[in-house]
Design a protein around this nucleic acid. Structure first.
Lengths: 258, 258
DNA sequence: CATGACAGGTGGCTAAGCCACCGTCTAACT
DNA sequence: AGTTAGACGGTGGCTTAGCCACCTGTCATG
């Protein structure tokens, strides 16, 4: 297959990948429709099946395509946005986007903090033996998984918490049932390639980009929860409005900056 | 190759991928060291070379490995963090992390706003013909690319801007040379798989996860710049501290939430 | 000391074939 | 008429074998 004029001679699988991406971007294959099969790619572009497979695999890894063994390759798509500034619940946000929210509780169990790992123990300032509730929830919009939430909360702050409680908004639960106002939260947001297991739960392919949000939430200065939550990269974007006033003055009046 | 007991029989390339990931996570191959070759994987795990290649390719796509044709497969790694709350310059942040910052100006040219695309025209509220400076900068830490910045600024707000100016901090330039204090910025942050071209510039493989930050910056209410900036996912994480007070009160007193 | 050739190791790629999964369609049985 | 089972075709997964081009290191020659 002749390559387009380019300064660098790219490997064939990368050139093919670019061509397939253009096909996807062109809209010729709308979301959920079947994409070209490996054999069709072989015929159309004159490459071998392993090369076609490798080019497709990269698009699968990006979350653009979905491969089903014995059936075919399908196009994926659609997006929610996450307002980083507020604690607007997932349900509300999904509804605002015109989508139907739901929640699957995958795991819910009390365990000693040490079982949850040093990250949890440190974030919540707990002794090793203190019990926490560990929960894993899958949040869905229109029956499509979009968030995989792992959260830990000290049992002593939420006694009597039940699996059923987790079907609803945990934020309003804290406020209304436990009288614990959420006053602040610290978040770390990373871009990650989703692992196979997490990707499977989220209905995307392993390696697709997603956000990993590690956060500690506080109520009047006391750590209330710690979470490790994955957001599908193809379904979420973060919005941030940032006033600059106080920070800007910290810049030195002179000196070199990049 | 026999599979570990699992509920779902995963394809061989995915099982192999998990095994290779465990090898990476174990620390047996430190950063920059050569990883197993395809032929070594064939010998050790009893799979075919195309299967070994596919398993490796997924790790390459995640940014864990770096493939060099004719040379081998190498392990990657190291991380900066980005404080989302402040306009601390890249240089300062890199220095605080004990790394040497530098900047490569890849492109710098004036162009009519319409050439920059509707996103730029809209974000900066410009007429189609109004000239903007378009710039592409690569930010490096210890000679390793970590940020790929694309930015547009109206010419009329920065007359006389030169390519040389861009070697330094553009924020301090605005303040000191143009007397334009930065007062606020709006950001959208997405997790994306880097395209081949961008990944190449950033020294990672196509498909590796990264942050795409789309932002509009303001000076006293007037749009000053628009940017589309890529942060390497393996080198950056975002930190956010979020007071909850105002927003929390917006939740209704009753009603179901998830 | 520098340069060029060669060998060996690397990933890229092809071809051919087979396997197992999956869905659809048809025929047979109830 | 409805249900079930089997066949068939299409799909991705995987193997085997071999060759190509890139890259580096070593050695010989000028």
């Amino acid at each position: 297959m002749t390559s387009a004029a380019s300064l660098v001679r790219l490997p064939m699988y990368q050139q093919l990948n670019a061509l397939l991406r253009e096909l996807l971007d062109s809209g010729a294959y709308p979301g959920d429709q079947q994409f070209l099969t490996e054999r069709q790619i072989v015929e159309r572009f004159g490459v071998s099946r392993p090369t076609a497979n490798k080019a497709l695999a990269a698009l699968v890894g990006e979350g653009r395509l979905d491969v089903r063994k014995g059936i075919g390759t399908f196009v994926r798509g659609r997006r929610l946005d996450y307002d980083i500034r507020s604690l607007v619940s997932f349900t509300r946000k999904a509804e605002q986007a015109g989508r139907r929210p739901s929640t699957k509780v995958i795991e819910f169990e009390p365990q000693p903090a040490e079982e949850a790992g040093p990250g949890v123990t440190a974030a919540l300032s707990l002794s090793a033996a203190e019990p926490v509730y560990a929960m894993v929830r899958l949040r869905l919009a229109d029956n499509e998984p979009v968030i995989l939430e792992r959260r830990w909360v000290p049992v002593r702050l939420c006694r009597g918490l039940t699996r059923k409680d987790l079907k609803g908004s945990i934020y309003s639960l804290w406020v209304e049932k436990y009288r614990l106002p959420i006053t602040e939260a610290d978040q770390v947001i990373r871009a990650v390639n989703l692992s196979k297991n997490d990707a499977h739960l989220l209905g995307v392919r392993g390696g697709a980009a997603g956000f990993l949000v590690s956060a500690t939430g506080y109520s009047r200065g006391a750590a209330l929860w710690y979470e490790q939550t994955l957001y599908r990269g193809d379904s979420y974007e973060f919005h941030h409005h940032r006033p600059a006033a106080g920070r800007l003055r910290q810049l030195p009046a002179s000196g070199t900056y990049a």
